[in-house]
């Protein structure tokens, strides 16, 4: 009689031991997992999250010289309502986005599809298209600035050969923004192309074989197979390039001089932010601009996330 309870006890003990082991096992797994991502999370919090919170706070302050500031409530946001420069920079940024993002995506899909074929010197072309990506934006801007120079630039020289007097590409307020857009598209194609290429290579060959058997032409194949199956990649690229386009700064900073007559018609939101934060030492207002930009990007990305259900196919 005595043996039985003992056995039960042992069994129960064993059971308890096992489940406890599993728990501690699980707990220690969590511990290690968290430990492993700590460096990344710390970086994220210190270098991204904390500055965002601080920027939000500073957007309610006004700055004096050398880091003194005082709380001014909603003043900066009220000031925005009357700031025509801000409105103009939003308009400039909108034009920039409307042109660079769709045209950039269209051209990079086109080139990716072409370079996905079996043609000679494929890797040479891929390298050529990718070169602008590994070049410093500042260097790109400098070279294009020389090409665009209205009196001594290559572009207007070539135009003069066929008897056309070229415009002032980066000084004419009506043209300058579009000159920048051309450079932006040119320098962005390579990066998107590589992403599209990997997307194209992920489409199973069997679909194409089946389509061929059914007698579909190449254009039909492109629209019925390639495009729908590429749509998750297109979605990813469009979100990333939209965010990137919202933050355009370096090209404008490098290509348009501070005393240029085209500055008002080219300055982007981030350029205006830079101007207030580092030139006019108006850091409170600059922070408010940054917060506004963050809000706009959030909203537009959210809209894209909703809309994607209508056109993105995940197999």
């Amino acid at each position: 009689m005595k043996e039985l309870p003992l056995e039960v006890e042992v069994k129960a003990n064993q059971k308890f031991k096992v489940s406890n082991l599993a728990k501690t096992r699980k707990r220690s797994d969590y511990f290690w997992a968290y430990l492993m991502i700590t460096p990344l999370m710390l970086g994220l919090v210190i270098f991204y999250l904390w500055p965002i919170i601080q920027t939000f706070y500073f957007s309610f302050t006004e700055w004096g010289a050398f880091g003194q500031y005082e709380w001014t409530g909603l003043d900066n946001y009220k000031r925005m309502l009357e700031d025509t420069n801000l409105l103009k920079s939003f308009k400039n940024t909108a034009i920039y986005i409307i042109f660079t993002v769709p045209i950039g995506i269209f051209l990079s899909i086109l080139i990716a599809v072409l370079l996905n074929q079996n043609i000679k010197g494929k890797s040479v072309y891929r390298t050529l298209y990718f070169l602008p990506v590994i070049t410093m934006p500042a260097a790109i801007a400098m070279v294009w600035k020389w090409l665009y120079n209205s009196d001594y630039g290559l572009l207007n020289y070539l135009l003069s050969l066929i008897g056309i007097k070229g415009p002032q590409w980066v000084s004419d307020p009506k043209i300058a923004l579009y000159s920048i857009i051309v450079v932006a598209i040119w320098s962005g194609i390579g990066y998107n192309m590589v992403i599209f290429l990997s997307g194209l290579q992920g489409i199973p060959k069997t679909y194409y074989e089946a389509a061929e058997m059914d007698g579909a032409g190449p254009i039909r194949v492109f629209f019925k197979i390639t495009l729908p199956l590429l749509s998750p990649v297109i979605f990813f690229v469009s979100i990333m390039s939209l965010i990137g386009a919202f933050q355009v700064f370096d090209l404008i900073f490098m290509m348009i001089g501070k005393s240029s007559t085209a500055l008002e018609n080219t300055q982007s939101i981030v350029y205006l932010f830079y101007q207030h934060a580092f030139v006019l030492n108006d850091k409170g207002y600059a922070a408010a601009i940054a917060v506004l930009l963050l809000a706009v990007i959030l909203i537009i990305t959210a809209i894209q996330m909703v809309l994607q259900k209508k056109w993105v196919h995940y197999d």
Binding site: N149, S150, D151, Y152, Q168, D172, G257, S259, S260, T261
Partner: peptide
């Protein structure tokens, strides 16, 4: 012009 002097 001002534009020319900002370009070169």
């Amino acid at each position: 012009t001002q534009a020319q002097m900002t370009e070169t």
